[in-house]
């Protein structure tokens, strides 16, 4: 029974500490995510939420100083960012980059094929890939004209986020990390993005949402809500915790935590 449980673990983070420019940001973070689960990390600005997402994806500016991250049984920290992506980790960026001169379609195909290549599978040619991607556009209600434009260039905030979810749909990650995916979205775009994520979430996969606001959680219902503060997870609860945070702010958690420490 235990063994089956173990294999269900997608991500296991133990006592993680990390810094940026020599400044410690993560100070002993613990988290475990299993198949089929949806987690949300909430917390005030500067609590280390986005740093955590960058560390998971392997951004070179973030240095891990201690702890472990195990992803699907592998030591994630030993992998290059592209190897993490190929093993099934996906980060939807808070600010997706614009890449002038690279067509979105080419970008998506290259990304898709680099995974196939790493798995030793034959790559898809342009025509086959075109069929594949067109079949996925509806997940995020994206107009085909976005495929021929440069990656994210001139896209609105909502279009960029939809493009991120389209990439997620193509890359079929085991763990999707959505970093502030709701920021800068109007309610219609938010619904489209959330709906896309929900369609892609199957029992063998997991989602980690990082968000400042409760609003996204109305559309993507989390199994667990973690509250982060000063580089650690202070408390964990169910989806009702998010509502409580929304009405009471973050201070009461801090106060509770202090009480807990004092005890």
């Amino acid at each position: 029974m235990t063994i089956i449980d173990e294999s269900d673990v997608i991500l296991s983070v133990k006592d993680l500490t990390a810094e940026v420019d020599g400044i410690p940001i993560l100070k002993g973070l613990n988290l475990e995510i299993k198949r089929g689960e949806i987690h949300a990390i909430m917390g005030p600005n500067g609590s280390g939420k986005s740093t955590f997402s960058k560390v998971l994806a392997g951004h070179p500016a973030y240095g891990v100083t201690g702890g472990t991250i195990t992803f699907l049984g592998e030591d994630l920290l030993a992998l290059e960012p592209q190897e993490r992506a190929i093993s099934g980790l996906f980060l939807a960026f808070q600010y997706p980059l614009e890449i002038p001169g690279v067509s979105n379609l080419d970008f998506l195909r290259v990304a898709y094929n680099s995974r196939l290549k790493a798995q030793g599978k034959p790559e898809l040619d342009a025509l086959d890939f075109d069929d594949l991607v067109r079949g996925k556009l509806d997940i995020v209600k994206m107009d085909p004209s976005f495929l021929t434009r440069s990656v994210n260039e001139g896209f609105s905030g909502g279009e960029k986020k939809r493009n991120e979810i389209l990439q997620m749909a193509l890359l079929e990650p085991k763990l999707a990390i959505l970093d502030e995916t709701d920021s800068g979205l109007d309610i219609d775009a938010l619904k489209i993005v959330a709906n896309g994520v929900n369609q892609l979430t199957t029992p063998d996969k997991a989602v980690l949402m990082i968000t400042h606001y409760q609003r996204l959680l109305d559309y993507i219902i989390p199994d667990y809500v973690h509250v982060m503060e000063s580089g650690r997870i202070l408390t964990t609860g169910g989806k009702e915790l998010a509502l409580e945070l929304e009405s009471r702010g973050y201070d009461w958690i801090r106060d509770n935590e202090l009480v807990g420490v004092a005890e």
């Binding site: 960012p81 890449i99 001169g101 680099s114």
Partner: peptide, 30 residues
């Protein structure tokens, strides 16, 4: 070459030389 652009491409599965090549192609294609 923009380090953030390279990281974005890496996070989508592209090794660094390939990411650089894509960005260089984008620069020359004009």
């Amino acid at each position: 070459l923009d380090g953030e652009e390279i990281f974005y491409l890496q996070s989508r599965g592209l090794p660094i030389p390939y990411a650089r090549q894509l960005l260089v192609d984008a620069f020359t294609t004009e």
